[in-house]
Each structure stands twice: as structure tokens, then as C-alpha cells.
Design a protein around this nucleic acid. Sequence first.
DNA 1: ACTATACTTAGGTACATGGCTAACTATCAA
DNA 2: TTGATAGTTAGCCATGTACCTAAGTATAGT
Lengths: 122, 122
Amino acid sequence: MANYQATLEEIFQALADPTRRQVLERLSLGPAAVSQLAEPFAMALPSFLQHLKVLEQGGLVRSEKLGRVRTYYLVPETVKRARTWFDNQLRVWDRRFDQLDSLLLALDAHETTNPDKHKEVT
Amino acid sequence: MANYQATLEEIFQALADPTRRQVLERLSLGPAAVSQLAEPFAMALPSFLQHLKVLEQGGLVRSEKLGRVRTYYLVPETVKRARTWFDNQLRVWDRRFDQLDSLLLALDAHETTNPDKHKEVT
DNA sequence: ACTATACTTAGGTACATGGCTAACTATCAA
DNA sequence: TTGATAGTTAGCCATGTACCTAAGTATAGT
């Protein structure tokens, strides 16, 4: 079951749900069994298991079963991989000499010929 | 339209879609107009606009309209806010003296009384 | 062997999401 | 003022997602 090279797609998809993020938050404290993980949530167990599957498919967690009990634990490498995406975006952004100038430049020739006409900020 | 305090929920929701992540990647290079942003994608413009709305609602981008042209730009503060979530998870994780020990501990007394019986790794 | 525990599987439902076309509005350029 | 350009709005449709209940399997405890 362990997904050792989940796609960014799978990872972000897994992170999109608040229940799953809470599970990750819990697991960052340390491993836990299914029923322990499920306890804070109101939903039925099968619904909850679905979330665990998505997390495991996204490579964010792994699990091991011993007897009746399945224990889940975090895979920090994958969490780091997700964080890297943000680092990259921000790094590229930081490299732009001056973002404000870029914006004004992008807003273009209008500024000079039609100063402030039709301006609408959202 | 600008969402100055988007919830983590809105942010992660916005990040879940590959089209939207690509838009962010483009915008990390600098501002761009709607049609420029839309150009790499096969979808119809109204479908694409929907994505821009989600990004703006998530506070990840903002826009300004001048004449007919609406220009979008990145809001790095929000990207940073998302990254912080990952930092937090990883920081908590790092603080655990020894995650491997935790796992073994979580797997519990069985190990000692029933060594390796029924073991199943997924 | 018998019951409780801890998941697991199967299948079904409601709503959210991401896509579409058609039709409209507001500039800009000639 | 007329046409082209750049978005925008409205409404529809297919699929995916997150939930549910019911029923099954595998261990553990008595």
C-alpha cells in the first residue's frame, strides 16, 4: 500500500480536506491507531477510513497492522516535498527585482496616456 | 473582492487544483492579464475564470482592472501562510525525541509477548 | 467455542467541483 | 458609430467527494 513516490497532485489533493489535515497534525505528534485517530471526529468509521486511504495514497502517512490494530505514522519526507513547492514559488518571486514595478509595467501604456481612467481595484 | 484574511481551508482548497497551481507558478514570475494566464490552458475562458475566482477568494492572488484588461498578481504573504502550516507540522515532528521508538511503543506490548506474529506492513 | 473488538468491504446518496455554451457588457481602435 | 477585443454572467451537465448503513473478516480475551 505504501506510496513511495506520490505525485504532487495526490499530495495536494490529500491536503485539501480539513479532516485529513487534522489527522496529519495529530500524527506529527507521533503514531496512532485507527480508532485513536478517529476518536475526535463525529463521522462513521468507514468514512474516516476513506480519509486515511487518501492520506496513504498521497504518501503522507504509512501504516502497519499488528493483530487487530493498524497503526499510522507520518512520513515527514512527503510533507517536506509539499513544502518545497511553496519554497520554489516564493524563491522565484523574491528574485524579481521589483514586483511593484512589474505590476505597473504590466498595467502598461494606459497609465501614461490615460492616467487613472477606469481604474477599478478588487 | 480582495480577501485579506482567507481561511486555511480556502487556501488549501484553492491549491488542490493543478490548473490553479500552474497559475500561481506563472504569477510567481510576475503579474499577468487574464488572457495571458488563460492561454496555456485548453479550457474555455469562463471555466478558467472560475479558477481565478477561487484563487482570489483564497487570498493567493489579487487583481486590478484597467480599461478592458484585468491584471492578476501573486500575494506572497498568503503563500507564506500556507507554507507555515507545513513548517509547524514538521517542527512538532522534529521535536519528538525519537519517532522510531514512538512507533515501536505505539505498536505496544504485543511485540514483547507475541514477537512478529501477524505482522503486515502496507 | 463464543463474544467482543478493531477494523474492512460493499454499495448507495447528496452535494460540490470543474467543465461547457450562449449571451451580455465595457473598452478600444478605426 | 461600428466592429473587434477582453472580460463577465447565467445556466446546464457530468463526475468526484464525502458522507452514510449494513454486513463481513480477523484477532483477542474468557
